[in-house]
Simulated assay, not measured.
Amino acid sequence: MSVEYKDYYKILGVSKTAEKDEISRAFKKLARKYHPDLNPNDAEAEKKFKEVNEAHEVLKDPEKRRMYDQLGPNWQQGQHFGGGAGGYQNMNFGGFQGGGDFSDFFETIFGGGGGFQGAGGFQGFGGQGGYANRPQRGRDVEASLTLTLEEAYHGGRKSITLSDAGGGSKALEVNIPAGVKDGARIRLSGQGDQGYAGGGAGDLYLKVNIAAHHRFTLDGVNVMLDLPLSPWEAALGTEATVPTLDGNVSLRIAAGTGSGRKLRLRGKGLGSASKKGDQFVRIKIVVPDSATDKQKELWEELAKEYESFTPRDF
């Protein structure tokens, strides 16, 4: 018999670090949605209701949840548990003794015939040593790593502290690759969950989240910057100092440059080597207030000089 692994966190729509209150709220919401009394002729809703109930049965109980998390989806290098009537027979998980309207997966782990020998540790499925006596690699873990745009561009060492579900914390030194992109994952070997029976630890994957910047915006690996110009700078041309993530540069603005035009600074974006992005400078013409009669008069004279100019073609 092959028993399919069930992701109870996914069923309830919560993260693996969800607190008990969040799990309870998610369960109540889904239980109301799929309750058979509200869906009397919907077999799929009844199935969902049973799955939600089963997921809550495990995740609400610290001991059940701990056992479930320790096994994980990859404990047998795959998504299915090998057959037999395994489980933790001699452990009374909050009064559950097997049976009930639960899946084969649940009964294989928390009920059934043979295996767990009290609180001392695993003896294995069927009491024959089984998988739990074999070295098992720890689970891979994923966490979020928020970086400033400057940190992502330059890279380098960064000290971080991660909190775990049990309330503990771990201090780590992370090497940030220069030019790392938003959404990229940084792998820290051996920093995931501990293995069992002499198995190696899993890996930690840090998913990069680049924080919003007060000056620049991101478009993939390209960096965008709005450059305000006065009307006369745009009309006559000028040389402007432009900030980049690599320091200020001087940019020549050609006469007659219109608002919205984009100028490219090659290699000033994120990424690396041949895949390195660029910085685009978007021209934004800013018109000053006409505070005096003289200023208004000059604008009126300019309008007369350009009487034949029509900026709109519709």
Rank of each mutant, 00 (worst) to 15 (best):
G127V: 04
P73R: 00
G130M: 05
I109F: 03
Q97E: 14
F106Q: 07
P135H: 07
P73S: 05
Q76K: 02
F96G: 03
D104I: 00
G98E: 10
G86Y: 02
G86I: 02
G126E: 07
Q79E: 08
H80P: 05
N133Y: 03
T108W: 00
G78W: 03
G112D: 10
G84N: 09
G112S: 12
D101M: 14
D101G: 14
Q77E: 03
A132I: 06
G82Y: 06
S103M: 08
D104S: 15
F102I: 03
R134I: 06
Q128A: 13
Y131E: 15
W75M: 15
G84P: 06
G72D: 05
D101L: 13
H80N: 08
G130P: 05
F105M: 11
G112L: 10
Y131D: 10
H80R: 11
F116T: 06
Q123W: 02
G112N: 09
G84E: 09
G118Q: 15
G87C: 12
G121S: 14
Q97T: 15
A119N: 11
S103Q: 11
D104Y: 00
G82H: 00
G113K: 08
G120K: 11
D104N: 14
Q117F: 04
Q89H: 15
G100C: 08
H80M: 08
G87F: 01
P73C: 03
M91N: 10
G124D: 00
N133W: 01
G83D: 07
G111W: 01
I109M: 14
Q79L: 07
G129W: 05
G82T: 09
I109Y: 00
N90F: 13
H80F: 09
Q128P: 04
G114R: 04
Q77K: 08
G98C: 15
Y88K: 13
G111M: 06
D104T: 08
R134E: 14
G127P: 02
Q89N: 12
P135L: 09
Q89P: 01
Q89W: 11
F116Y: 13
D104F: 04
G83C: 00
A119T: 09
G82M: 04
G121V: 08
N74A: 04
F105S: 02
G121Q: 11
G111H: 01
A119M: 07
G98I: 14
L71Y: 06
F125M: 05
N92I: 12
F96P: 07
L71V: 15
A132Y: 09
Q76M: 05
Q97A: 15
F105E: 00
Q76D: 06
Q123S: 09
A132H: 08
Y88A: 15
L71S: 02
N133Q: 12
D104M: 11
G94E: 10
F125Q: 03
Y131K: 06
G86E: 00
F81V: 10
G112R: 12
F110K: 01
Q89K: 14
D101C: 07
G72W: 01
G95I: 06
F116N: 14
F106T: 05
L71D: 00
W75L: 12
G111K: 03
G124Y: 11
Q123V: 13
G98L: 14
G115C: 09
M91D: 11
G99S: 11
N92G: 07
Q123K: 02
G127K: 02
F125I: 04
S103P: 12
G95T: 08
G118W: 14
A119Y: 05
G129D: 05
A132N: 13
N133M: 10
Q128G: 13
P135M: 11
Q117C: 09
G82W: 07
G100E: 15
G111A: 05
P73A: 02
G78E: 07
G100R: 07
